[in-house]
């Protein structure tokens, strides 16, 4: 989902192995859009350590979790559905980022790629605990295991961060279909080489497919540019490849 005028960008990746993963990611997008269209809750905002727009994004992601969980309880064919989510809302030059699962957000700033999210995966949990070394891999059945997703529990912990963005910066949101196939260095090179968001997206999707991409790949590249009165986000390219 990209709402360029509002500066809102969301990527969801339904869980392929779980039933109705595609339905879940669709529901998440709709629920988030609905929440963001609604009126702000001024009281909730004032107690948050984040800026109002980031807090609204966080609330919307929480609400979407409740919604998907509720739907899954009602309909047996949707039982156990889940999805990842990574959303960014860029407002007054501050990007608020919320995420659950292994879809990622990166900031390109000063010719450097900075990760804004940390995967909620079994792999990442093992790394944090010092149980695996660089380059080592978990047994195949654990390789793709997530420890947090939307829609599988009545409530979910959402990771949130905020980062200032300046003219020349890029914000990249992507699903694991990209990050499993394309090294971060190549992502950095693509931004440096092509500069135009759509070209960057096209190149990344092509590179992932060349490397044997078998999963859904979703990439959103947002270029931040300077304006006279305010910053504008003028370039958005995204590409969705479905199986």
């Amino acid at each position: 989902m990209s709402r360029v005028d509002d500066g809102v960008f969301v990527v969801c990746d339904g869980m392929g192995g779980a039933p109705a993963g595609e339905v879940a990611s669709e529901m998440a997008i709709q629920a988030i859009a609905r929440e963001l269209n609604g009126h702000t809750n001024g009281e909730a905002v004032s107690s948050s350590p984040f800026l109002p727009h980031t807090t609204r994004l966080l609330d919307a992601v929480r609400q979407s979790n409740e919604f998907i969980y509720g739907e899954a309880q009602k309909d047996p064919s949707h039982a156990g559905m889940g999805t990842t989510v990574v959303g960014a809302w860029i407002h007054e030059q501050i990007a608020g980022v919320a995420h659950v699962g292994d879809s990622r957000a990166y900031l390109w700033h000063n010719d450097r790629l900075e990760p804004l999210t940390r995967d909620h995966s079994l792999m990442e949990a093992h790394i944090e605990a010092g149980l695996v070394e660089q380059g080592q891999r978990l047994p195949a059945e654990q390789q793709n295991a997530l420890v947090r997703v939307l829609g599988r529990e009545p409530a979910v912990e959402v990771d949130v961060t905020e980062v200032p963005v300046q003219a020349g910066d890029y914000v990249v949101l992507c699903s694991d279909g990209l990050t499993r196939m394309v090294p971060e260095a190549e992502l950095a090179k693509a931004i440096q080489t092509f500069q135009e968001p759509q070209q960057i997206c096209d190149h990344l999707i092509a590179a992932a497919n060349e490397n044997g991409g078998a999963d859904n790949i979703t990439v959103v590249v947002v270029k931040v540019t300077g304006g006279w009165w305010h910053q504008l986000i003028n370039g958005v390219g995204s590409h969705l490849k479905r199986k």
Binding site: E124, L146, V147
Partner: peptide
């Protein structure tokens, strides 16, 4: 030790579907 998973492409056979660990 601040390692991150290798973003290098894994062999295709290990590319199973993403699964979720329940509570």
């Amino acid at each position: 030790n601040a390692v991150e998973p290798q973003p290098v492409a894994p062999p295709l056979e290990s590319l199973g579907d993403t699964v979720y660990l329940d509570t």
